[in-house]
Design a protein around this nucleic acid. Sequence first.
DNA 1: CGCGAAGTTGATCGGACTCAACGCCCGTGG
DNA 2: CCACGGGCGTTGAGTCCGATCAACTTCGCG
Lengths: 246, 246
Amino acid sequence: MGKTDYHALMPAASNPLSETLHCDSCPVQDSAACSRLDAPQRQQLEMMGRGHIYQPGDIIFHAGDDNRQCATLISGLLKIVDCDSNGVERIITLIHPAGFVGELFAPLNRYDIVALNIARICLFPRADYEKMLNESPELTQGLLRRALQSVEDNQKFLALVNRRTAQEKVAGLLLALAESSGSAPCQPNPHVELCMTREEIAALLGITMETVSRQIGKLESAKLIKRAGAQHIDIIDHDGLQGLVE
Amino acid sequence: MGKTDYHALMPAASNPLSETLHCDSCPVQDSAACSRLDAPQRQQLEMMGRGHIYQPGDIIFHAGDDNRQCATLISGLLKIVDCDSNGVERIITLIHPAGFVGELFAPLNRYDIVALNIARICLFPRADYEKMLNESPELTQGLLRRALQSVEDNQKFLALVNRRTAQEKVAGLLLALAESSGSAPCQPNPHVELCMTREEIAALLGITMETVSRQIGKLESAKLIKRAGAQHIDIIDHDGLQGLVE
DNA sequence: CGCGAAGTTGATCGGACTCAACGCCCGTGG
DNA sequence: CCACGGGCGTTGAGTCCGATCAACTTCGCG
């Protein structure tokens, strides 16, 4: 990842792209952890946090850093990355809008959190956020729903990668991305934006970049999908893809 | 799994092994979701739930059933199982004592939940439990901590199985089980009780049972572990094992 | 135009899967 | 008591999927 991580390296307070929050116009105001707050509480959160914009490749939280912030993803896509000693990248999971990142009650960040897309997040000082959790049952309940959703997402992802062939993994990923970018879960978006290099897809699915490429090629020959540039794929036969993953 | 699931098939109310709860003597009273409750709240929970004991192989929740119960695991070990149409078993993850099972806010159980061990759980009607979540911020906060812990466990497990060789997976699993059964995280128990057949280990790690057997054999020849019966393994060289997974 | 990063494609290799035989343990019944 | 059988685990031989290594293409950019 040769991308600049310029913004991430600056202290949040002096980040030139930091801006005040405007929850009223927030696209995830109904689904994020803060969705159950009443007006005064929401205002309190607004004062507590700052909005930030990250570019693809920017590192939002560094593994090993002491963990003083947490955040809600407003738009874009993040990856949680486990980088081992040899520099082999292992993507633990993806974070979609409304997702919450930053571990509470833990001293250090265990993983890198990196933007795949242009990502808008609201960033909170962790201490303030935890304090507010103690005062606001609504925030706690909202975050609980988020956390349960994360558990579910992780379990689905485990089912996608464990004990599956390369073809099943690639097909399953395309379907998952189509669903997550669709207007509703039952209305998947046939135009899939990967937001990832082949290498990143490989790190996510636990296979190699060459295999990813070959499998995408096979799916295209089988007329299930169509490539439209490296990062974009059109799903032609959704049911056919679904059939590959059962 | 030819084991009887006799108890699971009976309605909870008439289950002869159902017993009233005694939180005072509960071994996970300090770490489970209910750990933050004060005395009256705890009493309320005690009246709401029932204790049950399951035998190895018993199915606690069936995938597809409507989901009216949730539970805290007191002792033993559970597996969450995704069984696909061909009957191929995929273990999503393991649940350790103090873990919470049963999805809240969801109509159906997505996965089978099965006892690997003799398992003691306290079972709650989901509606009552959710109602209490609305009334007790302490319970919500306790469950939040549990859920965040689940997310972390799942992430660790993903890092254990994704992009790893069979040897790394087996070594990593042994270390994880040693840690989870140890008195403290930093004091792993060298006597590991697998509680799983080779086939179950395979379903968990995403490899075949034969490969599991071969890898255990290799680790033994390398004098890192020692087999003591099929279900029990002694860790001889903890650091050596650790070295295999980096 | 040249350069480098990302992606594709091909050839070869190896680790894990598959299929099969065999050993071990334990319960059951003659 | 021993014979039998079945579940589970181990071990071996052959195959195949995906990894590895390498060439080449495509695209974006100075």
